[in-house]
């Protein structure tokens, strides 16, 4: 028996999303969930640009995009939403233009600012899910805190050299970023070696995590850090543990009662 077409999916959208609608455990119901969903992408560099690009292509209803600063020549090996003709102009405008060209049906909220302690909660409140692609751990930890407080899932993706990692945080069900590092690592440097093909790989995988979580199918990386080394093409799933004294997500976990004496 044919599925009922949800009233909000138009014939044009059926054409555009036809190939992903054929995914048996996604289908029209999954597409409708994506259409009604909203995602915050923090920074639109090598990672976030690809995440946003794939989410726009897949038909996520609303993207809130946060990225400050102007396009620099050194962005262009990996930041595929930025173009040569936009060097010296705001990154967020280049990203918005490229995403609107790809899928004009997606509502885009462009924020010419990076995430920090003062705006994280307000940005997170606008969406159903957050994707963390920022270069600074101060930003990442601020967004983690806001997302955990709001009980919103976070897809954490990262890269270095030819390596990358990916995990999904569901507050109260999985460890959060602060479980892995409660404070910014002092040995981390904001600029680091990487190829655009590495950021593109993990960015697309992060987008797939988002789609699975929003549409409710597949098996997201919950409590699991996927690490990938593209030099040797080795992928490993590694279990991560929550920190019982985590100040961010600890209060969400049921406390263990001492047995009666």
């Amino acid at each position: 028996m044919a599925n009922q077409v949800p009233k909000t999916i138009t014939p044009e959208e059926l054409d555009i999303y036809q190939w992903q609608l054929w995914v048996s455990d996604f289908g029209l119901a999954g597409q409708e969930k994506l259409r009604q969903s909203s995602v915050l992408v923090s920074r639109l560099g090598g990672l976030g640009g690809l995440v946003a690009y794939q989410l726009a292509a897949a038909g996520v209803g609303k993207l809130v995009l946060a990225h400050a600063g102007n396009v620099k020549p050194s962005d262009l090996n990996r930041q595929l939403l930025m173009t040569h003709d936009w060097i010296g102009k705001p990154r967020i405008e280049s990203a918005q233009r490229r995403l609107s060209e790809l899928n004009p049906r997606v509502e885009i909220v462009a924020v010419n600012a990076n995430v920090h302690d003062d705006n994280a909660a307000e940005l997170v409140s606008q969406v159903d899910l957050v994707v963390d692609c920022a270069p600074l751990f101060e930003e990442r930890l601020a967004m983690n805190r806001a997302a955990v407080n709001a009980r919103k899932p976070v897809v954490e993706c990262a890269m270095y050299d030819l390596e990358a990692s990916l995990t999904s945080v569901v507050p109260g069900q999985t460890p959060c970023l602060a479980c892995l590092t409660p404070t910014p690592p002092t040995a981390w440097r904001r600029e680091f070696p990487v190829f655009g093909a590495v950021s593109g790989t993990v960015g697309c995988m992060a987008a797939m995590e988002v789609i699975k979580i929003l549409a409710g199918f597949g098996e997201p990386l919950l409590g699991t850090l996927l690490t990938m080394d593209l030099r040797s093409m080795q992928f490993r799933r590694r279990g991560i543990s929550r920190r019982e004294d985590c100040e961010v997500c600890g209060p969400l976990w049921p406390s263990v009662q001492a047995p009666d004496a």
Binding site: R43, G45, G46, L47, G48, R78, D132, C133, A134, P135, L136, F137, R140, C157, A158, M159, Y160, E163, A164, S165, L180, T181, P185, A187, W188, R190, E191, F192, V194, S199, T227, R236, R238
Partner: peptide
């Protein structure tokens, strides 16, 4: 035993 550092985006 695997050792690695947390990394980020950019």
């Amino acid at each position: 035993v695997a050792l690695m550092t947390l990394v980020s985006g950019g």
